[in-house]
């Protein structure tokens, strides 16, 4: 088991404004670790995280999945999440080895053109909770509000990932049982991606799973 990145610089005050890593975050880390060999074989060079929050996941990947220097992109709609991602990367001393690009934006909107078919590894622990709408004001609500069936943001992310992924690129995403695997499969199919469940976990309050997408 790889150790969790150092997050000791983040306090309660930070977690009032950003998502505090939780069972879903750690499930994604565990799923990545399961796929360590497959990911290392691809020698990822361009790595992209949607909704990086504290920066836990990007930092974990930089630490354990990148033998040589890599180009990272971490985006979030929440400016505090962007700053936190930057701090976490630095706290773990990764900014000397890798280059991290952080942008406050909606999914990959301003990056799609330039990164089209170039991304080797994509990561997303999305807002997956079914809510009336995903179009909520408070940044903290946007960490979980997934809209109808919890898939409003997920749906757009899958579509964008299908454009960003390199030919053998891998995309790992957390989902909730209520998101419905068959729905996700259909969304993936529509944009030419294969999808597989690689890990499932039941927490006290949720049934979560992690899926892997790859071009057909």
């Amino acid at each position: 088991m790889f150790p969790t990145p150092d997050l000791s610089h983040l306090t309660r005050n930070d977690y009032n404004q950003i998502y505090e890593p939780d069972a879903d975050s750690f499930l994604l880390l565990d799923a990545l670790e399961l796929k360590l060999n497959e990911i290392l074989e691809q020698k990822p060079f361009i790595i992209f995280e949607f909704g990086s929050g504290s920066g836990l996941i990007t930092t974990f990947v930089a630490k354990h999945f990148c033998l040589t220097s890599c180009l990272f992109f971490a985006i979030d709609i929440n400016p505090y999440a962007c700053y936190s991602t930057k701090r976490t990367f630095q706290q773990n001393n990764l900014h000397k080895k890798h280059c991290l690009n952080i942008i406050q934006c909606n999914l990959a909107d301003p990056l799609i053109d330039r990164l089209s078919s170039k991304v080797d590894l994509i990561l997303f622990n999305p807002p997956y909770v079914p809510t009336e709408t995903s179009d909520v004001k408070e940044v903290i609500e946007r960490t979980y509000a997934g809209g109808k069936q919890g898939i409003e943001v997920i749906e757009k992310a899958i579509e964008q990932a299908s454009r960003l992924l390199s030919s053998k690129g891998l995309f790992y995403m957390v989902a909730l049982e209520e998101n419905n695997f068959d729905t996700l499969k259909e969304l993936a199919n529509q944009v030419g991606l294969n999808i597989d469940i690689i890990l499932k976990r039941r927490t006290l309050i949720e049934r979560l799973f992690v899926v892997q997408f790859q071009r057909k």
């Binding site: 992109f73 280059c99 690009n101 952080i102 942008i103 301003p110 990056l111 053109d113 330039r114 990164l115």
Partner: peptide, 21 residues
């Protein structure tokens, strides 16, 4: 923001913008 970041950004999601780069 580094210039490498700038090199990857476009504004073509704006209405009416074609390249934005």
């Amino acid at each position: 923001m580094k210039l490498i970041t700038h090199n990857m950004l476009t504004s073509n999601i704006l209405k009416g913008v074609t390249r934005g780069f």
